[in-house]
Amino acid sequence: MKYLILIHSNPKSRALWETLDDDQRYALGKGHMELTEALTESGELVVSEGLADLELAKRVSVRDGRTLTSDGPFAEVKEHLAGFYLVDVESYERAVEIAARTPDAATGAVEVRPVLDMSTWDL
């Protein structure tokens, strides 16, 4: 079953990031690389990416047939998605185990969500 492991950022985690020295930032990045390599070797990783700065985001909506966009950051949002791992594992427990291994779990919020399987839907 596929699970999305979402890595969240917020003002508190961003403030913590700002206090890290270069070696600590390197260690965090290396931790992600090592986890990605381990999941690739085990065959459990579908894809993993970090996301660019929130200020580069655009919110998209369609109203009356018109596509509308607005630039980020979005004032009403205090927490945002910083990156993700999409894994294909045997159980929810395994997905949680992987989420706990992300470097961000030690200081921030990491969420595990099952991917909706629409393959059995009669559409």
Rank of each mutant, 00 (worst) to 15 (best):
L86Q: 01
T69K: 02
H8S: 05
V112C: 13
N10V: 02
K30I: 01
I98N: 00
L28R: 15
K58M: 03
V115A: 13
T19P: 10
L4W: 08
A99V: 08
T69P: 09
S91W: 09
E49N: 01
V89W: 03
A100I: 12
R113E: 06
T102I: 07
S61P: 00
H32R: 13
L56Y: 15
E76M: 10
W121C: 14
K2M: 13
L116S: 09
V60P: 03
L56N: 04
R101I: 00
L81M: 02
S70T: 02
R14I: 06
S119E: 12
M1G: 12
D21V: 13
E49P: 04
L35K: 09
L68K: 08
K58W: 05
V87L: 10
D23F: 02
A75C: 14
D117L: 05
E37D: 14
S48L: 05
V77L: 10
I98K: 07
G43A: 14
T69M: 07
D23E: 12
S70Q: 10
A75G: 03
L35E: 06
I5W: 10
L68M: 13
E49R: 14
I5P: 04
T102G: 00
A38P: 06
V77H: 07
A15F: 04
M118T: 14
G31F: 06
Q24C: 14
D21E: 02
V89C: 04
R66T: 04
G72W: 02
I7V: 07
K12E: 09
A82F: 07
T107C: 03
L51K: 05
Y85G: 05
Y92M: 12
K78I: 00
A38D: 15
D122E: 15
V96R: 08
D64C: 10
L20M: 02
A106L: 05
T102Y: 00
E18H: 01
L28M: 10
A106D: 00
N10Q: 12
E97G: 15
E55V: 13
L4D: 01
L123Y: 09
S70L: 12
G31R: 05
V89I: 09
W121Q: 13
A100Q: 15
Q24M: 14
T40C: 11
D53E: 02
M118S: 15
L4T: 05
R59P: 04
E49M: 11
T102E: 09
K2T: 09
R14A: 12
R14P: 07
H32P: 12
T102D: 12
G31E: 04
A95V: 09
L35C: 00
S48G: 08
E41W: 02
D117G: 08
D22V: 13
R66Q: 07
L54W: 12
E34A: 09
L20Q: 10
E41A: 14
V110R: 05
T19A: 03
E55S: 15
G29P: 09
G31D: 05
L4M: 10
T19G: 12
D64H: 08
E90L: 03
L123I: 13
F74P: 07
L6H: 02
R25M: 15
V112Q: 00
S119T: 14
E18Q: 15
A106R: 11
E37P: 00
V96K: 02
W121F: 15
